[in-house]
Design a protein around this nucleic acid. Structure first.
Lengths: 293, 293
DNA sequence: TCTTCAAATGTAATTTAATTTCATGCAAGC
DNA sequence: GCTTGCATGAAATTAAATTACATTTGAAGA
Protein backbone atom coordinates (compact mmCIF):
# COMPACT_ATOMS: atom_id res chain seq x y z
CA UNK A 1 0.00 0.00 0.00
CA UNK A 2 1.16 3.50 -0.76
CA UNK A 3 0.65 6.34 1.65
CA UNK A 4 -2.93 6.57 2.72
CA UNK A 5 -4.75 9.64 1.72
CA UNK A 6 -5.00 11.66 4.83
CA UNK A 7 -2.95 13.80 7.08
CA UNK A 8 -1.21 11.35 9.35
CA UNK A 9 -0.14 13.92 11.88
CA UNK A 10 -3.62 15.37 12.24
CA UNK A 11 -4.99 11.88 12.55
CA UNK A 12 -2.49 11.04 15.25
CA UNK A 13 -3.42 14.14 17.21
CA UNK A 14 -7.05 13.17 16.91
CA UNK A 15 -6.38 9.66 18.15
CA UNK A 16 -4.19 10.91 20.96
CA UNK A 17 -7.25 12.69 22.26
CA UNK A 18 -10.20 10.53 21.38
CA UNK A 19 -8.87 7.08 20.63
CA UNK A 20 -8.79 3.87 22.58
CA UNK A 21 -6.64 3.83 25.67
CA UNK A 22 -3.74 2.00 24.02
CA UNK A 23 -4.17 3.82 20.77
CA UNK A 24 -3.90 7.07 22.64
CA UNK A 25 -0.66 5.94 24.16
CA UNK A 26 0.77 4.86 20.85
CA UNK A 27 -0.27 8.06 19.10
CA UNK A 28 1.20 10.14 21.90
CA UNK A 29 4.44 8.19 21.81
CA UNK A 30 4.72 8.62 18.07
CA UNK A 31 4.00 12.33 18.23
CA UNK A 32 6.40 12.85 21.05
CA UNK A 33 9.27 11.55 19.03
CA UNK A 34 8.22 10.85 15.51
CA UNK A 35 11.75 10.36 14.33
CA UNK A 36 12.26 7.64 16.89
CA UNK A 37 9.03 6.06 15.76
CA UNK A 38 10.20 5.79 12.19
CA UNK A 39 13.48 4.17 13.15
CA UNK A 40 12.82 2.10 16.24
CA UNK A 41 11.72 -1.50 16.17
CA UNK A 42 8.21 -2.41 17.11
CA UNK A 43 9.55 -3.77 20.36
CA UNK A 44 11.12 -0.54 21.52
CA UNK A 45 8.19 1.48 20.33
CA UNK A 46 5.82 -0.77 22.25
CA UNK A 47 7.95 -0.36 25.30
CA UNK A 48 8.02 3.40 24.98
CA UNK A 49 4.27 3.60 24.53
CA UNK A 50 3.64 1.15 27.34
CA UNK A 51 1.65 -1.27 25.23
CA UNK A 52 2.22 -4.67 23.69
CA UNK A 53 3.67 -5.27 20.28
CA UNK A 54 0.52 -6.51 18.60
CA UNK A 55 -1.16 -3.31 19.67
CA UNK A 56 1.31 -1.40 17.53
CA UNK A 57 0.56 -3.58 14.55
CA UNK A 58 -3.16 -3.16 15.06
CA UNK A 59 -2.70 0.55 15.46
CA UNK A 60 -0.95 0.79 12.11
CA UNK A 61 -3.62 -1.29 10.42
CA UNK A 62 -6.32 0.89 11.91
CA UNK A 63 -4.67 3.88 10.30
CA UNK A 64 -4.98 2.17 6.97
CA UNK A 65 -1.46 0.88 6.57
CA UNK A 66 -0.52 -2.61 5.67
CA UNK A 67 1.54 -3.09 8.77
CA UNK A 68 4.17 -1.55 10.94
CA UNK A 69 6.82 -1.21 8.26
CA UNK A 70 4.41 0.43 5.94
CA UNK A 71 3.37 2.82 8.65
CA UNK A 72 6.94 3.83 9.31
CA UNK A 73 7.49 4.61 5.68
CA UNK A 74 4.31 6.63 5.52
CA UNK A 75 5.21 8.48 8.66
CA UNK A 76 8.67 9.19 7.35
CA UNK A 77 7.18 10.74 4.26
CA UNK A 78 4.91 12.97 6.26
CA UNK A 79 7.79 14.00 8.44
CA UNK A 80 10.02 14.80 5.55
CA UNK A 81 7.65 17.51 4.60
CA UNK A 82 6.32 19.06 7.73
CA UNK A 83 7.98 17.02 10.41
CA UNK A 84 10.31 19.61 11.72
CA UNK A 85 7.29 21.60 12.77
CA UNK A 86 5.72 18.95 14.90
CA UNK A 87 5.92 20.30 18.38
CA UNK A 88 7.18 17.96 21.00
CA UNK A 89 4.76 18.64 23.77
CA UNK A 90 1.25 19.90 23.28
CA UNK A 91 1.94 22.60 25.85
CA UNK A 92 3.91 24.40 23.20
CA UNK A 93 0.94 24.32 20.98
CA UNK A 94 -1.11 26.43 23.28
CA UNK A 95 1.43 29.16 23.78
CA UNK A 96 2.13 31.71 21.10
CA UNK A 97 5.45 30.08 20.40
CA UNK A 98 4.02 27.16 18.56
CA UNK A 99 1.64 29.07 16.33
CA UNK A 100 3.80 29.39 13.24
CA UNK A 101 4.78 25.75 13.32
CA UNK A 102 1.27 24.51 13.84
CA UNK A 103 0.04 26.55 10.93
CA UNK A 104 2.91 25.52 8.73
CA UNK A 105 2.72 21.83 9.48
CA UNK A 106 -1.00 21.51 9.11
CA UNK A 107 -0.96 23.51 5.89
CA UNK A 108 1.83 21.46 4.41
CA UNK A 109 0.23 18.25 5.43
CA UNK A 110 -3.02 19.28 3.83
CA UNK A 111 -1.26 20.11 0.58
CA UNK A 112 0.72 16.93 0.68
CA UNK A 113 -2.36 14.85 1.36
CA UNK A 114 -4.28 16.33 -1.49
CA UNK A 115 -1.34 15.97 -3.84
CA UNK A 116 -1.17 12.30 -3.09
CA UNK A 117 -4.86 11.87 -3.51
CA UNK A 118 -5.41 13.63 -6.78
CA UNK A 119 -6.05 11.46 -9.75
CA UNK A 120 -4.03 12.85 -12.63
CA UNK A 121 -6.26 11.46 -15.29
CA UNK A 122 -9.32 13.04 -13.73
CA UNK A 123 -7.51 16.32 -13.25
CA UNK A 124 -6.49 16.26 -16.86
CA UNK A 125 -10.00 15.51 -17.95
CA UNK A 126 -11.33 18.36 -15.83
CA UNK A 127 -8.77 20.69 -17.37
CA UNK A 128 -9.81 19.67 -20.86
CA UNK A 129 -13.45 20.31 -20.05
CA UNK A 130 -12.71 23.70 -18.52
CA UNK A 131 -10.38 24.73 -21.34
CA UNK A 132 -13.15 24.11 -23.84
CA UNK A 133 -15.89 25.81 -21.89
CA UNK A 134 -18.09 28.63 -23.16
CA UNK A 135 -18.66 29.75 -19.60
CA UNK A 136 -17.24 28.54 -16.32
CA UNK A 137 -19.08 29.04 -13.06
CA UNK A 138 -17.40 28.31 -9.76
CA UNK A 139 -19.65 27.61 -6.79
CA UNK A 140 -18.70 27.43 -3.15
CA UNK A 141 -19.88 28.84 0.14
CA UNK A 142 -18.33 29.12 3.53
CA UNK A 143 -14.79 30.31 4.02
CA UNK A 144 -12.65 27.77 2.27
CA UNK A 145 -14.92 26.86 -0.61
CA UNK A 146 -15.81 30.42 -1.46
CA UNK A 147 -12.17 31.38 -1.43
CA UNK A 148 -11.37 28.58 -3.81
CA UNK A 149 -14.26 29.52 -6.10
CA UNK A 150 -13.14 33.13 -6.17
CA UNK A 151 -9.62 32.06 -6.85
CA UNK A 152 -10.66 29.91 -9.76
CA UNK A 153 -12.47 32.83 -11.35
CA UNK A 154 -9.38 34.90 -10.83
CA UNK A 155 -7.19 32.36 -12.53
CA UNK A 156 -9.40 31.54 -15.43
CA UNK A 157 -10.19 35.07 -16.48
CA UNK A 158 -6.46 35.65 -16.79
CA UNK A 159 -6.36 32.80 -19.23
CA UNK A 160 -9.04 34.49 -21.27
CA UNK A 161 -11.79 32.12 -20.23
CA UNK A 162 -15.17 33.56 -19.30
CA UNK A 163 -15.49 32.67 -15.66
CA UNK A 164 -17.52 33.77 -12.68
CA UNK A 165 -17.55 32.76 -9.05
CA UNK A 166 -20.80 32.64 -7.10
CA UNK A 167 -20.60 32.28 -3.39
CA UNK A 168 -24.19 33.07 -2.61
CA UNK A 169 -26.73 30.27 -2.65
CA UNK A 170 -29.41 32.20 -4.48
CA UNK A 171 -27.03 33.31 -7.18
CA UNK A 172 -25.70 29.80 -7.55
CA UNK A 173 -29.12 28.46 -8.26
CA UNK A 174 -30.15 31.33 -10.53
CA UNK A 175 -26.98 31.19 -12.60
CA UNK A 176 -27.23 27.41 -12.75
CA UNK A 177 -30.63 27.77 -14.38
CA UNK A 178 -29.06 29.73 -17.23
CA UNK A 179 -26.75 26.87 -18.14
CA UNK A 180 -26.46 25.24 -21.51
CA UNK A 181 -24.20 22.59 -22.92
CA UNK A 182 -21.26 24.98 -23.18
CA UNK A 183 -21.42 25.76 -19.50
CA UNK A 184 -19.00 24.15 -17.08
CA UNK A 185 -19.71 24.20 -13.37
CA UNK A 186 -16.93 23.75 -10.85
CA UNK A 187 -18.34 23.18 -7.38
CA UNK A 188 -16.38 23.24 -4.15
CA UNK A 189 -17.47 21.82 -0.85
CA UNK A 190 -15.57 20.24 2.00
CA UNK A 191 -18.56 18.35 3.26
CA UNK A 192 -20.37 17.85 0.00
CA UNK A 193 -23.60 18.47 1.87
CA UNK A 194 -24.27 22.11 1.23
CA UNK A 195 -27.76 22.17 -0.18
CA UNK A 196 -27.68 25.24 -2.43
CA UNK A 197 -24.52 24.04 -4.14
CA UNK A 198 -25.91 20.53 -4.62
CA UNK A 199 -29.13 21.95 -6.03
CA UNK A 200 -27.27 24.31 -8.33
CA UNK A 201 -25.15 21.48 -9.69
CA UNK A 202 -28.21 19.32 -10.21
CA UNK A 203 -30.06 22.11 -12.00
CA UNK A 204 -27.09 22.95 -14.21
CA UNK A 205 -26.64 19.32 -15.10
CA UNK A 206 -30.26 19.11 -16.12
CA UNK A 207 -29.69 21.95 -18.56
CA UNK A 208 -26.78 20.15 -20.14
CA UNK A 209 -23.86 21.74 -18.29
CA UNK A 210 -20.78 19.72 -17.49
CA UNK A 211 -20.36 19.54 -13.74
CA UNK A 212 -17.12 19.06 -11.84
CA UNK A 213 -16.88 18.87 -8.08
CA UNK A 214 -14.04 19.14 -5.62
CA UNK A 215 -15.61 17.48 -2.63
CA UNK A 216 -15.75 14.51 -0.33
CA UNK A 217 -16.20 11.15 -2.01
CA UNK A 218 -19.59 9.55 -1.33
CA UNK A 219 -21.19 12.86 -0.48
CA UNK A 220 -24.43 14.15 -1.96
CA UNK A 221 -22.52 16.63 -4.06
CA UNK A 222 -20.33 13.84 -5.39
CA UNK A 223 -23.46 12.01 -6.42
CA UNK A 224 -24.87 15.07 -8.15
CA UNK A 225 -21.81 16.02 -10.20
CA UNK A 226 -20.46 14.26 -13.27
CA UNK A 227 -16.73 14.42 -12.59
CA UNK A 228 -15.53 14.19 -9.02
CA UNK A 229 -12.11 15.18 -7.80
CA UNK A 230 -12.42 13.72 -4.34
CA UNK A 231 -10.43 14.72 -1.32
CA UNK A 232 -10.62 14.59 2.41
CA UNK A 233 -8.74 16.60 4.95
CA UNK A 234 -8.74 15.53 8.54
CA UNK A 235 -9.65 18.41 10.80
CA UNK A 236 -8.02 18.82 14.14
CA UNK A 237 -9.97 19.45 17.28
CA UNK A 238 -8.20 22.62 18.30
CA UNK A 239 -10.81 25.29 17.82
CA UNK A 240 -8.24 28.05 17.71
CA UNK A 241 -6.67 26.45 14.76
CA UNK A 242 -7.86 27.41 11.34
CA UNK A 243 -8.88 24.80 8.88
CA UNK A 244 -5.99 23.49 6.81
CA UNK A 245 -8.53 22.51 4.20
CA UNK A 246 -8.32 25.88 2.52
CA UNK A 247 -4.74 25.20 1.59
CA UNK A 248 -5.83 21.94 0.09
CA UNK A 249 -8.58 23.57 -1.93
CA UNK A 250 -6.28 26.30 -3.05
CA UNK A 251 -3.73 23.76 -4.19
CA UNK A 252 -6.36 21.81 -6.08
CA UNK A 253 -7.52 24.98 -7.73
CA UNK A 254 -3.96 25.81 -8.68
CA UNK A 255 -3.51 22.40 -10.18
CA UNK A 256 -6.64 22.72 -12.23
CA UNK A 257 -5.77 26.23 -13.37
CA UNK A 258 -2.24 25.28 -14.29
CA UNK A 259 -3.43 22.27 -16.23
CA UNK A 260 -5.92 24.44 -18.07
CA UNK A 261 -3.22 26.98 -18.85
CA UNK A 262 -1.06 24.28 -20.36
CA UNK A 263 -3.90 23.09 -22.49
CA UNK A 264 -4.61 26.54 -23.78
CA UNK A 265 -0.95 27.16 -24.38
CA UNK A 266 0.48 30.16 -26.13
CA UNK A 267 -2.53 32.47 -26.10
CA UNK A 268 -2.56 32.26 -22.32
CA UNK A 269 1.05 33.34 -22.13
CA UNK A 270 0.30 36.36 -24.25
CA UNK A 271 -2.62 37.36 -22.07
CA UNK A 272 -0.59 37.09 -18.93
CA UNK A 273 2.12 39.17 -20.49
CA UNK A 274 -0.43 41.87 -21.23
CA UNK A 275 -1.76 41.90 -17.68
CA UNK A 276 1.72 42.05 -16.31
CA UNK A 277 2.59 44.83 -18.68
CA UNK A 278 -0.42 46.78 -17.53
CA UNK A 279 0.63 46.45 -13.95
CA UNK A 280 4.12 47.55 -14.84
CA UNK A 281 2.79 50.81 -16.11
CA UNK A 282 0.89 51.58 -12.96
CA UNK A 283 3.15 50.45 -10.21
CA UNK A 284 6.80 50.88 -9.65
CA UNK A 285 8.70 48.30 -11.56
CA UNK A 286 9.41 45.03 -9.90
CA UNK A 287 9.73 42.66 -12.81
CA UNK A 288 9.61 39.48 -10.85
CA UNK A 289 6.38 40.05 -9.01
CA UNK A 290 3.47 37.74 -9.63
CA UNK A 291 0.40 38.68 -11.55
CA UNK A 292 -1.77 40.52 -9.09
CA UNK A 293 -0.28 41.86 -5.91
CA UNK B 1 21.18 6.75 12.14
CA UNK B 2 18.94 9.36 10.66
CA UNK B 3 18.84 10.06 6.96
CA UNK B 4 22.26 10.84 5.58
CA UNK B 5 22.82 14.32 4.37
CA UNK B 6 23.00 14.01 0.67
CA UNK B 7 20.76 13.68 -2.28
CA UNK B 8 19.97 10.01 -2.45
CA UNK B 9 18.56 10.16 -5.91
CA UNK B 10 21.65 11.82 -7.34
CA UNK B 11 23.81 9.28 -5.58
CA UNK B 12 21.77 6.44 -7.01
CA UNK B 13 22.15 7.80 -10.51
CA UNK B 14 25.87 8.04 -9.96
CA UNK B 15 26.08 4.47 -8.77
CA UNK B 16 23.89 3.22 -11.58
CA UNK B 17 26.58 4.44 -13.93
CA UNK B 18 29.86 3.98 -12.17
CA UNK B 19 29.25 1.48 -9.41
CA UNK B 20 30.01 -2.17 -9.03
CA UNK B 21 28.13 -4.51 -11.27
CA UNK B 22 25.60 -5.54 -8.61
CA UNK B 23 25.38 -2.07 -7.17
CA UNK B 24 24.54 -0.76 -10.59
CA UNK B 25 21.74 -3.25 -10.85
CA UNK B 26 20.37 -2.38 -7.46
CA UNK B 27 20.55 1.36 -8.08
CA UNK B 28 18.85 0.97 -11.42
CA UNK B 29 16.10 -1.16 -9.91
CA UNK B 30 15.50 1.39 -7.18
CA UNK B 31 15.38 4.28 -9.60
CA UNK B 32 13.13 2.45 -11.95
CA UNK B 33 10.45 2.10 -9.34
CA UNK B 34 11.35 3.95 -6.22
CA UNK B 35 7.97 3.47 -4.69
CA UNK B 36 8.30 -0.26 -5.04
CA UNK B 37 11.72 -0.07 -3.46
CA UNK B 38 10.39 1.60 -0.35
CA UNK B 39 7.65 -0.92 0.12
CA UNK B 40 8.94 -4.22 -1.13
CA UNK B 41 10.82 -6.74 0.98
CA UNK B 42 14.51 -7.24 0.50
CA UNK B 43 13.71 -10.54 -1.14
CA UNK B 44 11.55 -9.13 -3.90
CA UNK B 45 13.87 -6.21 -4.40
CA UNK B 46 16.79 -8.59 -4.75
CA UNK B 47 14.83 -10.59 -7.26
CA UNK B 48 13.90 -7.51 -9.26
CA UNK B 49 17.49 -6.30 -9.33
CA UNK B 50 18.80 -9.76 -10.12
CA UNK B 51 21.14 -9.92 -7.15
CA UNK B 52 21.23 -11.70 -3.84
CA UNK B 53 19.73 -10.42 -0.64
CA UNK B 54 22.94 -9.64 1.20
CA UNK B 55 23.95 -7.49 -1.72
CA UNK B 56 21.01 -5.27 -0.98
CA UNK B 57 22.04 -4.96 2.64
CA UNK B 58 25.60 -4.16 1.65
CA UNK B 59 24.35 -1.65 -0.86
CA UNK B 60 22.38 0.17 1.80
CA UNK B 61 25.34 0.18 4.16
CA UNK B 62 27.57 1.53 1.46
CA UNK B 63 25.19 4.45 1.06
CA UNK B 64 25.64 5.22 4.72
CA UNK B 65 22.49 3.70 6.11
CA UNK B 66 22.30 1.35 9.01
CA UNK B 67 20.62 -1.31 7.00
CA UNK B 68 17.85 -2.00 4.56
CA UNK B 69 15.03 -0.72 6.73
CA UNK B 70 16.86 2.47 7.38
CA UNK B 71 17.49 2.92 3.70
CA UNK B 72 13.84 2.51 2.88
CA UNK B 73 12.87 5.16 5.37
CA UNK B 74 15.51 7.52 4.04
CA UNK B 75 14.45 6.89 0.50
CA UNK B 76 10.84 7.48 1.40
CA UNK B 77 11.75 10.81 2.89
CA UNK B 78 13.69 11.87 -0.14
CA UNK B 79 10.82 10.88 -2.32
CA UNK B 80 8.19 12.51 -0.19
CA UNK B 81 7.65 15.56 -2.32
CA UNK B 82 9.15 15.57 -5.73
CA UNK B 83 10.54 12.09 -5.71
CA UNK B 84 7.26 10.37 -6.03
CA UNK B 85 7.32 11.79 -9.48
CA UNK B 86 10.80 10.71 -10.34
CA UNK B 87 10.59 9.59 -13.84
CA UNK B 88 13.17 8.32 -16.16
CA UNK B 89 12.85 11.18 -18.60
CA UNK B 90 12.83 14.73 -17.29
CA UNK B 91 10.51 15.75 -20.10
CA UNK B 92 7.60 14.55 -18.03
CA UNK B 93 8.20 17.26 -15.52
CA UNK B 94 7.14 19.95 -17.90
CA UNK B 95 3.99 18.24 -19.13
CA UNK B 96 0.73 18.03 -17.27
CA UNK B 97 2.02 15.06 -15.36
CA UNK B 98 4.13 17.17 -13.10
CA UNK B 99 1.51 19.75 -12.27
CA UNK B 100 0.51 18.44 -8.86
CA UNK B 101 4.07 18.16 -7.70
CA UNK B 102 5.05 21.57 -8.97
CA UNK B 103 2.13 23.17 -7.19
CA UNK B 104 2.73 21.23 -4.02
CA UNK B 105 6.42 21.84 -3.79
CA UNK B 106 6.25 25.54 -4.55
CA UNK B 107 3.41 26.02 -2.09
CA UNK B 108 5.25 24.18 0.63
CA UNK B 109 8.37 26.10 -0.07
CA UNK B 110 6.54 29.36 0.30
CA UNK B 111 5.00 28.32 3.58
CA UNK B 112 8.26 27.03 4.90
CA UNK B 113 10.11 30.16 3.91
CA UNK B 114 7.64 32.41 5.58
CA UNK B 115 7.56 30.28 8.71
CA UNK B 116 11.30 30.53 9.03
CA UNK B 117 11.25 34.24 8.41
CA UNK B 118 8.53 35.32 10.78
CA UNK B 119 9.58 37.11 13.91
CA UNK B 120 7.57 35.65 16.75
CA UNK B 121 7.85 38.69 18.94
CA UNK B 122 6.51 40.92 16.20
CA UNK B 123 3.75 38.48 15.45
CA UNK B 124 2.82 38.44 19.07
CA UNK B 125 2.83 42.19 19.25
CA UNK B 126 0.63 42.39 16.18
CA UNK B 127 -1.77 39.92 17.75
CA UNK B 128 -1.96 41.98 20.91
CA UNK B 129 -2.71 45.11 18.92
CA UNK B 130 -5.40 43.39 16.87
CA UNK B 131 -6.96 41.70 19.88
CA UNK B 132 -7.43 45.08 21.53
CA UNK B 133 -8.75 46.88 18.48
CA UNK B 134 -12.04 48.74 18.27
CA UNK B 135 -12.09 48.17 14.53
CA UNK B 136 -9.82 46.21 12.23
CA UNK B 137 -9.52 47.04 8.56
CA UNK B 138 -7.66 44.74 6.23
CA UNK B 139 -6.35 46.24 2.99
CA UNK B 140 -4.99 44.47 -0.03
CA UNK B 141 -5.49 44.47 -3.77
CA UNK B 142 -4.61 42.06 -6.51
CA UNK B 143 -5.17 38.35 -6.19
CA UNK B 144 -3.05 37.27 -3.30
CA UNK B 145 -3.29 40.33 -1.10
CA UNK B 146 -7.03 40.74 -1.49
CA UNK B 147 -7.51 37.08 -0.68
CA UNK B 148 -5.48 37.47 2.47
CA UNK B 149 -7.37 40.60 3.48
CA UNK B 150 -10.70 38.88 2.95
CA UNK B 151 -9.50 35.92 4.90
CA UNK B 152 -8.44 38.07 7.82
CA UNK B 153 -11.88 39.64 8.00
CA UNK B 154 -13.36 36.17 7.89
CA UNK B 155 -11.22 35.01 10.76
CA UNK B 156 -11.57 38.00 12.98
CA UNK B 157 -15.29 38.33 12.80
CA UNK B 158 -15.56 34.79 14.07
CA UNK B 159 -13.57 35.83 17.07
CA UNK B 160 -16.08 38.58 17.71
CA UNK B 161 -13.81 41.38 16.55
CA UNK B 162 -15.25 44.09 14.32
CA UNK B 163 -13.34 43.62 11.11
CA UNK B 164 -13.71 44.56 7.47
CA UNK B 165 -11.68 43.86 4.38
CA UNK B 166 -11.33 46.47 1.65
CA UNK B 167 -9.86 45.40 -1.60
CA UNK B 168 -10.77 48.46 -3.59
CA UNK B 169 -8.39 51.41 -3.60
CA UNK B 170 -11.05 54.05 -3.22
CA UNK B 171 -12.66 52.28 -0.31
CA UNK B 172 -9.28 51.76 1.33
CA UNK B 173 -8.61 55.47 1.30
CA UNK B 174 -12.11 56.47 2.35
CA UNK B 175 -12.26 54.03 5.23
CA UNK B 176 -8.74 54.99 6.26
CA UNK B 177 -9.95 58.57 6.67
CA UNK B 178 -12.49 57.44 9.26
CA UNK B 179 -9.79 55.99 11.52
CA UNK B 180 -9.23 56.88 15.11
CA UNK B 181 -6.86 55.59 17.77
CA UNK B 182 -8.92 52.43 18.28
CA UNK B 183 -8.57 51.51 14.63
CA UNK B 184 -6.07 48.91 13.52
CA UNK B 185 -5.07 48.65 9.89
CA UNK B 186 -3.59 45.43 8.52
CA UNK B 187 -2.17 46.00 5.06
CA UNK B 188 -1.05 43.31 2.65
CA UNK B 189 1.15 43.76 -0.36
CA UNK B 190 3.68 41.52 -2.00
CA UNK B 191 5.54 44.40 -3.59
CA UNK B 192 4.86 47.04 -0.97
CA UNK B 193 4.49 49.49 -3.84
CA UNK B 194 0.75 49.60 -4.39
CA UNK B 195 -0.09 53.27 -4.14
CA UNK B 196 -3.66 53.21 -2.82
CA UNK B 197 -2.69 50.88 -0.01
CA UNK B 198 0.35 52.98 0.93
CA UNK B 199 -1.75 56.11 0.90
CA UNK B 200 -4.49 54.50 2.97
CA UNK B 201 -1.98 53.37 5.57
CA UNK B 202 -0.42 56.82 5.69
CA UNK B 203 -3.79 58.50 6.09
CA UNK B 204 -4.93 56.09 8.79
CA UNK B 205 -1.69 56.58 10.68
CA UNK B 206 -2.19 60.30 10.60
CA UNK B 207 -5.57 59.85 12.28
CA UNK B 208 -4.03 57.82 15.07
CA UNK B 209 -4.65 54.28 13.81
CA UNK B 210 -2.16 51.54 14.52
CA UNK B 211 -0.84 50.22 11.25
CA UNK B 212 0.54 46.76 10.58
CA UNK B 213 1.87 45.61 7.23
CA UNK B 214 2.64 42.23 5.75
CA UNK B 215 4.93 43.27 2.96
CA UNK B 216 8.43 43.38 1.55
CA UNK B 217 11.06 44.87 3.82
CA UNK B 218 12.43 48.20 2.58
CA UNK B 219 9.38 48.89 0.48
CA UNK B 220 7.36 52.10 0.54
CA UNK B 221 4.58 50.36 2.42
CA UNK B 222 7.06 49.13 5.00
CA UNK B 223 8.17 52.72 5.47
CA UNK B 224 4.61 53.93 5.89
CA UNK B 225 3.43 51.38 8.45
CA UNK B 226 4.32 51.20 12.11
CA UNK B 227 4.77 47.46 12.57
CA UNK B 228 6.18 45.43 9.71
CA UNK B 229 5.94 41.70 9.35
CA UNK B 230 8.32 41.38 6.45
CA UNK B 231 8.48 38.52 4.02
CA UNK B 232 9.70 37.78 0.58
CA UNK B 233 8.79 34.95 -1.71
CA UNK B 234 10.84 34.22 -4.76
CA UNK B 235 8.70 33.92 -7.82
CA UNK B 236 9.42 31.35 -10.44
CA UNK B 237 9.65 32.18 -14.08
CA UNK B 238 7.10 29.70 -15.33
CA UNK B 239 4.25 31.93 -16.42
CA UNK B 240 1.74 29.12 -16.30
CA UNK B 241 2.47 28.66 -12.71
CA UNK B 242 0.44 30.49 -10.12
CA UNK B 243 2.13 32.53 -7.50
CA UNK B 244 3.06 30.57 -4.41
CA UNK B 245 2.98 33.84 -2.50
CA UNK B 246 -0.68 33.45 -1.76
CA UNK B 247 0.08 30.40 0.34
CA UNK B 248 2.60 32.46 2.24
CA UNK B 249 0.15 35.28 2.84
CA UNK B 250 -2.54 32.87 3.85
CA UNK B 251 -0.21 31.22 6.31
CA UNK B 252 0.80 34.55 7.77
CA UNK B 253 -2.84 35.49 8.14
CA UNK B 254 -3.54 32.19 9.84
CA UNK B 255 -0.70 32.78 12.23
CA UNK B 256 -1.96 36.21 13.11
CA UNK B 257 -5.53 35.04 13.53
CA UNK B 258 -4.54 32.09 15.65
CA UNK B 259 -2.39 34.25 17.88
CA UNK B 260 -5.26 36.70 18.26
CA UNK B 261 -7.63 33.88 19.13
CA UNK B 262 -5.31 32.69 21.84
CA UNK B 263 -5.09 36.16 23.30
CA UNK B 264 -8.83 36.51 23.39
CA UNK B 265 -9.18 33.04 24.85
CA UNK B 266 -12.38 31.52 26.12
CA UNK B 267 -14.90 33.90 24.60
CA UNK B 268 -13.54 33.08 21.18
CA UNK B 269 -14.01 29.38 21.76
CA UNK B 270 -17.59 29.94 22.73
CA UNK B 271 -18.26 32.01 19.63
CA UNK B 272 -16.81 29.38 17.39
CA UNK B 273 -18.86 26.73 19.10
CA UNK B 274 -21.95 28.77 18.36
CA UNK B 275 -21.11 29.18 14.70
CA UNK B 276 -20.40 25.50 14.42
CA UNK B 277 -23.62 24.68 16.17
CA UNK B 278 -25.52 26.87 13.77
CA UNK B 279 -23.99 25.05 10.84
CA UNK B 280 -24.87 21.76 12.42
CA UNK B 281 -28.51 22.70 12.40
CA UNK B 282 -28.52 23.62 8.76
CA UNK B 283 -26.45 20.99 7.13
CA UNK B 284 -26.35 17.30 7.54
CA UNK B 285 -24.28 16.42 10.52
CA UNK B 286 -20.61 15.97 10.03
CA UNK B 287 -19.20 16.88 13.40
CA UNK B 288 -15.63 17.16 12.36
CA UNK B 289 -15.98 19.67 9.58
CA UNK B 290 -14.30 23.03 9.90
CA UNK B 291 -16.05 26.27 10.53
CA UNK B 292 -17.32 27.37 7.18
CA UNK B 293 -17.50 24.91 4.37
C1' DT C 1 49.32 -18.36 -20.16
C1' DC C 2 49.04 -19.56 -15.65
C1' DT C 3 48.92 -18.48 -10.75
C1' DT C 4 47.55 -15.99 -7.04
C1' DC C 5 45.06 -13.10 -4.35
C1' DA C 6 41.82 -9.77 -3.21
C1' DA C 7 37.49 -8.07 -4.04
C1' DA C 8 32.78 -9.07 -5.17
C1' DT C 9 29.01 -11.81 -4.78
C1' DG C 10 26.21 -15.69 -3.40
C1' DT C 11 24.43 -19.64 -0.14
C1' DA C 12 22.89 -21.14 4.03
C1' DA C 13 22.44 -20.39 8.88
C1' DT C 14 21.18 -17.30 12.28
C1' DT C 15 19.22 -13.57 14.37
C1' DT C 16 15.91 -10.15 14.63
C1' DA C 17 11.41 -8.23 13.75
C1' DA C 18 6.63 -8.51 12.93
C1' DT C 19 2.39 -10.89 12.87
C1' DT C 20 -1.06 -14.32 14.00
C1' DT C 21 -3.55 -16.96 17.15
C1' DC C 22 -5.61 -17.55 21.09
C1' DA C 23 -6.46 -16.38 26.00
C1' DT C 24 -7.74 -12.98 29.40
C1' DG C 25 -9.97 -9.32 31.37
C1' DC C 26 -12.79 -5.37 31.43
C1' DA C 27 -16.85 -2.58 30.54
C1' DA C 28 -21.48 -1.85 28.62
C1' DG C 29 -25.98 -3.66 28.30
C1' DC C 30 -29.57 -6.95 29.82
C1' DG D 1 -25.14 -10.06 38.75
C1' DC D 2 -24.69 -12.21 34.41
C1' DT D 3 -23.56 -12.08 29.55
C1' DT D 4 -21.56 -10.46 25.54
C1' DG D 5 -18.38 -8.28 22.85
C1' DC D 6 -14.43 -5.72 22.40
C1' DA D 7 -9.75 -4.24 23.74
C1' DT D 8 -5.48 -5.94 25.01
C1' DG D 9 -1.63 -8.97 25.91
C1' DA D 10 1.27 -13.60 25.91
C1' DA D 11 3.08 -16.98 23.35
C1' DA D 12 3.79 -19.16 19.01
C1' DT D 13 4.59 -18.57 14.33
C1' DT D 14 6.03 -16.58 10.26
C1' DA D 15 8.57 -13.32 7.64
C1' DA D 16 12.56 -10.42 6.94
C1' DA D 17 17.15 -9.08 7.36
C1' DT D 18 21.76 -9.97 8.58
C1' DT D 19 25.91 -12.62 9.50
C1' DA D 20 29.27 -15.98 8.61
C1' DC D 21 31.30 -18.33 5.46
C1' DA D 22 31.99 -20.23 0.65
C1' DT D 23 32.51 -19.45 -4.09
C1' DT D 24 33.40 -16.91 -8.03
C1' DT D 25 35.58 -13.42 -10.74
C1' DG D 26 38.98 -10.78 -12.67
C1' DA D 27 43.25 -8.29 -12.53
C1' DA D 28 48.41 -8.30 -11.66
C1' DG D 29 52.53 -10.44 -11.75
C1' DA D 30 55.34 -14.72 -12.68
Amino acid sequence: MASPHFDIVARLREIAENGQRSDQRVAAAVLEDADFATHASIERLAEKAGVSEPTITRFCRMLGFEGTRDFKVGLAQSLAIAGRFISVNPADASTGNGVPSIIASSAMNAIETVTGLINRADLDQAATIVAGAGMVRAYGSGGASSMAATELENRLFRLGLPAAAHIDGEMQQMTAATSNKDTVIVAYSLSGEVKPVIDAVTIAGRYGAKTIAFTAANSSLAAAAQLILPFHIEEGTNVYRPSPARYALLALTDMLAMSVAEKIGAPAVERMRRIKNLQGMQKSDAPNLPLGD
